[in-house]
Design a protein around this nucleic acid. Structure first.
Lengths: 226, 226
DNA sequence: GTCTATAGGCTGATAGAC
DNA sequence: GTCTATCAGCCTATAGAC
């Protein structure tokens, strides 16, 4: 499951095997970081290489020197995001305790919304636009992974450890409600009347979502409050 | 609460009072419809007036004749969306039955994701980009509305009709998990291995979300299965 | 490896004939 | 009201001096 995203990188010589010199790696990292910010705000089409170069503090030509085209840079950014995005799913294993595993998964996804909001928004922009770059990846690798985890949830239900909730739709709900705090941050802040969300806000969000999921799936008792 | 979105339309003479001739109205509607499609896919910056005009089957100049600027057209599209987006919240009233009201709200939002996916995606793009146009509206009108509905949920909890779940975060979870089927449609279809979602898929989604929300909030019994 | 200068194409918007 | 022709500016990408 590791480095699933690597398949997206078209330029093999720029992959991890050949790291190049220190300067090369540092500049590539700088550009990717800046690109993530701009792609998150503007989407692929809306982002301009000039804006990315400016934010990276480099001349625009260097960006093309390292990545060739805007799309190659976009793929490099997405590639780094995918592995990050999927890692927390590993917690959902057949032998795990359903309450612990789901609570841990929700918490990991909420903390990712807090710590990597740009990655989440780049991914959201890509999918909203119809996943022109990721379509194949979603239909193959992600689908296989979700089918696997859905089987785990179904097994838990068959063992009477949780209600027979549609496992795929349960995962969708967890993805949506956790990523909401990254993707819809502007709306969340506006409605909550805050300039910025605090760590406590994210902890509260994780707790509320966890409570709804665990109790909603019949994993914890109906009478148990938080 | 009606026509909250009207505040966004800058060109007063084009508001509903003065509908203009039949041709004018028809062309404006055609352009807005085409614009909604393109803005949904590409976001504001990514969308081009040429693409919108082509999809509307009109010369690009007509678009500027009717709306002046790309931003004015964008505001007109958003304006139509806002009223639509908020209408279902009306079901959450103090005297309503919590189970009926929340189930109805979830169902209405899921059906809107099915019937108006473009509207949902335009809104999502706007918020992900930091809500440059809607920021004021979200902080004032939407916040006031949410505060009002949060009070209703808190009252239900105080009356022992549901658990004391953080009401604002509950609304976020409902928004996120229902709109997910519109905004992340490409991912949902890929993971479910379908070319297109059916009415039954949306009914299932509404049922699963409703079950998790009602049971998770302690509104329906822990032992009750679907 | 770095960066300035610029090519070539597309963008939003408008002028003006019909 | 409609639409062709066109502008000035910005876009991605590259050539070539350093």
């Amino acid at each position: 499951m590791q480095r699933l995203g690597a398949m997206l990188e078209s330029n093999q010589q720029d992959s991890e095997q050949n790291q190049g010199g220190r300067i090369r790696r540092r500049n590539r990292a700088r550009i990717i970081e800046a690109a993530e910010e701009v792609f998150a705000e503007q989407g692929f089409t809306g982002a301009t290489t000039a804006a990315i170069a400016a934010r990276a503090g480099l001349p625009k030509a260097n960006l093309h020197y390292y990545f060739g085209t805007k799309e190659a840079l976009y793929r490099a950014v997405l590639s780094g995001i995918l592995d990050l995005w999927l890692a927390p799913l590993a917690q959902i294993m057949p032998d795990a305790d359903p309450a612990t595993a789901l609570a841990g998964y929700v918490r990991a996804k909420v903390l990712m919304a807090r710590d990597k909001p740009l990655a989440s928004r780049v991914f959201a922009n890509e999918v909203i636009s119809g996943a022109p770059v990721l379509a194949d990846y979603l239909a193959k690798d992600l689908k296989a992974l979700v089918d696997d985890k859905a089987a785990v949830l179904r097994a838990w239900a068959a063992q009477g450890r949780m209600d027979p909730v549609d496992p795929v739709k349960l995962l969708f709900l967890i993805w949506a409600s956790t990523q909401h705090y990254a993707d819809f941050d502007a709306q969340v802040r506006a409605v909550m009347g805050r300039r910025e969300l605090t760590d406590a806000d994210f902890e509260d969000a994780a707790e509320t979502i966890t409570q709804l999921v665990l109790k909603g799936c019949g994993i914890i008792d109906a009478t148990s409050k938080r």
